[in-house]
Design a protein around this nucleic acid. Sequence first.
DNA 1: TAGTATTCCTACCGCTTTGATAGGGAAATC
DNA 2: GATTTCCCTATCAAAGCGGTAGGAATACTA
Lengths: 152, 152
Amino acid sequence: MRISARADYAVRAALELAAAGDDCPLKTERIAEAQGVPRKFLEGILNDMRRGGLVVSRRGGQGGYKLGAPPETITVADVIRVVDGPLVSVRGERPPALSYTGPAESLLPLWIAVRANVRAILGEVTLADIARSELPERVYKLAEQPESWTNP
Amino acid sequence: MRISARADYAVRAALELAAAGDDCPLKTERIAEAQGVPRKFLEGILNDMRRGGLVVSRRGGQGGYKLGAPPETITVADVIRVVDGPLVSVRGERPPALSYTGPAESLLPLWIAVRANVRAILGEVTLADIARSELPERVYKLAEQPESWTNP
DNA sequence: TAGTATTCCTACCGCTTTGATAGGGAAATC
DNA sequence: GATTTCCCTATCAAAGCGGTAGGAATACTA
């Protein structure tokens, strides 16, 4: 289960926009430098976000990008879905599309539970939460536990 | 965040073995038919599981595969790690290897929380749980909620 | 000891995805 | 009209993914 570079970059760009505020559009160059991601690559990602309605753009002189909605209303899941499609998939299918037989029958509810638990984080945390470093209680509690930081 | 075909197949094969019991080795052919997965592909997966110590094999006449440990002690996370590497990664790196700056600083604890929540499911549910269709309370509760089944 | 069944190994294949770059067209500002 | 910036298309190499082929090694059976 991997978070792609696209998704990571997209969220980081969105966070820069959230921090910049609504009346201060940022150009690709600025964001790329601030977050240390390849400019041309980021260009394409921002474009996807625009098509997805997540950001709005303006060209020319004082142009750039800004968020298309208040950062309190945009979740990380929203961003990832726009640039990468479904949050969680099994063999390229969304879990409800699967079917199992024999001793594997209860595998479906398991994948469903995994997806629900991923949503419980990514679907609840907003850009505003991260930008101001105030993750929701429940999320913070998870991140706090030392065993969450250890690799198996 | 996708579960690969390898991982899905591996878990299903392991479940067949769990259901078969310790004194009844299954051959690749049997498992492939039972779960409807390509035989030759499954062969390679079972081999990885053997190298990872998850299953033991015997060739010849009454050969086949059986679990290398009681199914109550093997979690789904164990299986996935053996065939696919780390459970959760960001841009190919494990979360603790990342670092973020500016408004993205709190992105790291977020990824950590996601991983923790994935582990909370896949690292707790054992092959025995699934094979006998008795998922732990907490997991069952998640899978039960109707909104867990809806696509966004 | 010969035969057969099964795992095991190596290599390969086509396809898609991923991460990234290049170059120029279109529009907004000055 | 010049400049700035977004926007579009095309391309690229490398890696991963899902799957296949053929045969070598080994264990049981007779």
